[in-house]
Design a protein around this nucleic acid. Structure first.
Length: 542
RNA sequence: GCCCCGGUAGCUCAGUAGGAUAGAGCAGCAGUUUCCUAAACUGUUGGUCGGAGGUUCGAAUCCUCUCCGGGGUACCA
């Protein structure tokens, strides 16, 4: 509908040149009395043209060469709104399109031929994924889905680091637990990994090797085994909620391939770094950031900034048109340095889109569940999936704006009832599937021949919702806002449930029954496609 | 101190390229099943959009100040 109006206005702008000067925007009015779409162009132009907005609106309306079969009425209202009413014959045509495109409906080719990389999860293999990682994982995968639906060729990537202090501590944690099993008296430091999974890994080593590892160093087999086991568990957790990364990028490879050294010398060559007090500093203050930061410590060890920049250089070399990084808010001070560095190196940092999501608070019995990774008193993502299932996990994490703090209400999530929004959507889908089975006996078939019969309020409202799906997907993708899909689907399901209540299929006059069945079928397709974007299943029966 | 988020109905949250009377779900109250799944639907109660200024035809939305909550401000990642 918006496309049709945009084209109309473009044609008119040949007559009224001032239309070219503004950004055309069509809005869906809150009140039905104001039509299907509304345009505020006249009001915006009134200051520029120093004319009464209503006069401008009249001029615009007169210039529009519209098809009466498509637009039934154009009104000027309020201070100068132009309201468009689409005809009841035009609106149902969407059904035909939906049924023809089926699984493809909602996809756009706007970014066809473009390559995108979405990096998410990226947790180091030091422990099982927690609820906090869950939000990152689900949002990342859904953003990737949205980009795919808007035409991108998307690669999902996981960046990890298996070197450094944390991993040393991990290996030593396992070693100490192993020695414990051998009956040695150990002191387990407070800042070591306390979780039971450490004991399990130690137990496996004990079962396999007995006491033969007694004098092995922490960084040898203990660390390797820990990394292997933990990664196995991370991947299996992700798999359970339908997440598969194509690339696992090891930070260490940057060192092995001398990328870090190369980057250092380039930075020096370009005069972007300098030495002071035995450390190497990046000239961030000259790049517009607040202050210079250390990239190589006086100990000779790089800080995270250096490999992060090198890693992104590597991504640039892989020729992506878009690179999305998804972090939790605890990382929100790291990316400006990296972006500034990339820009100074001559890369187009606009191609990197950093998304920061806020934290998750788990609420159970009305109380906040406090979590700490180190003390191992966290809820793992696996436990959450055990409790509520994949669909609820995916839906709940997608449901909220990523920039808002999120309360994950365990009690609500566990409820298999009407209070849980996931089931509202799934139930709508199951209901339609049920009808479609039922009508087989009644010889009612999907037919788009008599769609003009769909004129009731409930039918028209459902149809208008269906019209919005494509642009909703594209808008969500371009703004990286998965939660919009959730909101849209709830509205769509509500429109369907109302239609279901008031417009019966079986028992209606044959032509009308077929038209309504087609509408229901189109609604089913859109519900399923929307759920697919979210990674939530669309059951045929509940 | 400085930086990034958030503060909208009792609760959880939508709504910010400025638009017409601020929405939904849950909770509360009152109803609807001889009828394609009642995990549904209908009606109803409930708001100084944290506060104060400003910008203008018009502000939850933009600007300034301020209060509250979360996160970050390392030669940790």
């Amino acid at each position: 509908m918006k496309q049709y109006l945009t084209n109309l206005f473009l044609k008119s702008s040949e007559k009224l040149s001032y239309l070219k000067e503004i950004n055309l925007f069509f809005d869906i009015p809150k009140s039905e009395a104001h039509g299907d779409l509304s345009c505020n162009a006249a009001m915006i132009l009134s200051k520029k043209l120093k004319k009464n907005p209503r006069t401008i609106a009249e001029e615009i309306v007169l210039s529009l060469d519209f098809d009466k079969k498509i637009i039934s009425k154009i009104e000027i209202a309020g201070h100068g709104f132009i309201n468009f009413f689409f005809s009841k014959e035009y609106i149902p045509q969407i059904i035909d399109e939906i049924i023809k495109k089926d699984e493809e409906f909602g996809k756009s080719e706007k970014y066809k031929g473009k390559k995108a990389n979405v990096e998410f999860v990226s947790a180091n293999p030091t422990g099982p994924l927690t609820v906090g990682h869950g939000r990152n994982a689900v949002i990342g995968d859904t953003v990737a889905n949205l980009l795919e639906w808007s035409g991108y060729d998307v690669e999902r990537e996981y960046y990890f680091n298996n070197a450094g202090r944390q991993m040393r501590v991990l290996g030593d944690s396992v070693r100490l637990r192993y020695l414990e099993l051998l009956g040695e008296k150990i002191e387990f430091p407070e800042d070591y990994y306390q979780g039971d999974y450490i004991k399990e890994i130690a137990r496996n080593l004990f079962d396999q090797f007995g006491s033969r590892l007694i004098s092995e160093p922490a960084e040898g087999i203990f660390k390797q085994e820990a990394e292997k086991e933990i990664f196995k568990s991370i991947r299996s957790t992700l798999e359970r909620i339908g997440i598969f990364h194509k690339i696992f990028f090891n930070e260490n490879s940057l060192y092995e391939e001398k990328k870090i050294d190369k980057l250092l010398s380039i930075l020096k060559e370009k005069d972007l770094s300098y030495e002071k007090e035995g450390a190497v500093w990046l000239k961030l203050s000259e790049m517009g950031n607040e202050q210079d930061k250390v990239i190589v410590k006086s100990s000779g060890e790089p800080t995270y900034r250096l490999p992060d920049i090198a890693y992104h250089c590597n991504k640039f070399e892989r020729n992506y048109d878009l690179m999305v990084d998804l972090f939790g808010s605890d990382h929100n001070d790291t990316y400006p340095d990296v972006l500034a560095g990339l820009k100074a190196l001559g890369y187009d940092s606009e191609k990197v889109k950093v998304l920061i999501h806020q934290f998750v608070t788990v609420v159970e019995n009305g109380e906040i569940v406090k979590m700490s990774t180190r003390k191992a008193n966290f809820i793992t993502l696996d436990e959450l999936i055990d409790e509520v299932g994949k669909d609820v996990v995916r839906y709940f994490f997608n449901m909220r704006n990523i920039s808002a703090h999120m309360n994950f209400d365990l009690d609500l999530a566990k409820k298999q009832s009407d209070e849980n929004p996931v089931f509202y959507l799934q139930y709508a889908h199951a209901r339609i599937c049920s009808i479609m089975k039922m009508v087989e006996k009644e010889s009612i078939k999907i037919s788009t021949e008599n769609l003009y019969l769909l004129t009731s309020d409930e039918e028209q409202k459902l149809l208008r919702k269906l019209h919005l799906f494509e642009e909703e997907v594209l808008y969500s993708a371009e703004n990286y806002e998965p939660h919009r899909i959730c909101a849209y689907l709830v509205e769509l399901a509500a429109a369907f449930h109302k239609f279901y209540t008031f417009c019966r299929i079986i028992g209606s006059e044959h032509k009308l029954a077929e038209a309504r069945l087609s509408l229901a079928s189109a609604a089913r397709i859109v519900l399923r496609n929307g759920l697919r974007i979210l990674g939530v299943s669309a059951p045929e029966r509940m």
